[in-house]
């Protein structure tokens, strides 16, 4: 068996497993806090995907201060991941504030009870 090829795809398999766990939680759980946790797991999966795209074999992290050698990967994907982490923080903070206000108005955080918008 080609062990090296299987070893190279382990990060991508982790991304798929994490993304599916997060998506399952958002779709099938009824507690609002669990839904927000599922969204956070999905954000981590997407960030891991972007970072693992930048890897080249035998090259080092792109930092010039006391580096080991000048063979470095292109840091474009790392910049995209940093931006995505900051956006994830802002959306998680907003979602949690909404859950606090819903608890104050409706008295429960179960999605079966938060249903007043139909009339």
């Amino acid at each position: 068996m080609n062990w090296e090829a299987i070893l190279m795809t382990i990060p991508y398999m982790t991304v798929v497993i994490l993304f599916m766990i997060g998506l399952f939680t958002v779709l099938f759980k009824k507690n609002l806090i669990k839904i927000i946790m599922g969204i956070a797991i999905m954000q981590n999966a997407a960030n891991l995907f972007l970072v693992s795209l930048a890897y080249r074999r035998g090259e080092y992290a792109p930092i010039f201060t006391s580096a080991e050698s000048t063979e470095m990967v292109m840091p474009t994907a790392h910049a995209l991941t940093l931006t995505s982490i900051v956006i994830g923080l802002a959306t998680t903070a907003l979602l949690l504030s909404f859950v606090i206000m819903i608890k104050k108005h409706y008295g429960s955080i179960n999605t079966d009870d938060v249903r007043r918008c139909k009339e």
């Binding site: 999905m42 979602l95 909404f98 859950v99 938060v114 007043r116």
Partner: peptide
């Protein structure tokens, strides 16, 4: 009113996903 927050929560969850 409680309904505005509920509508915004649904909008936000779907947009983030």
């Amino acid at each position: 009113e409680g309904e505005a927050v509920e509508a915004a929560l649904k909008y936000m969850i779907l947009s983030v996903v």
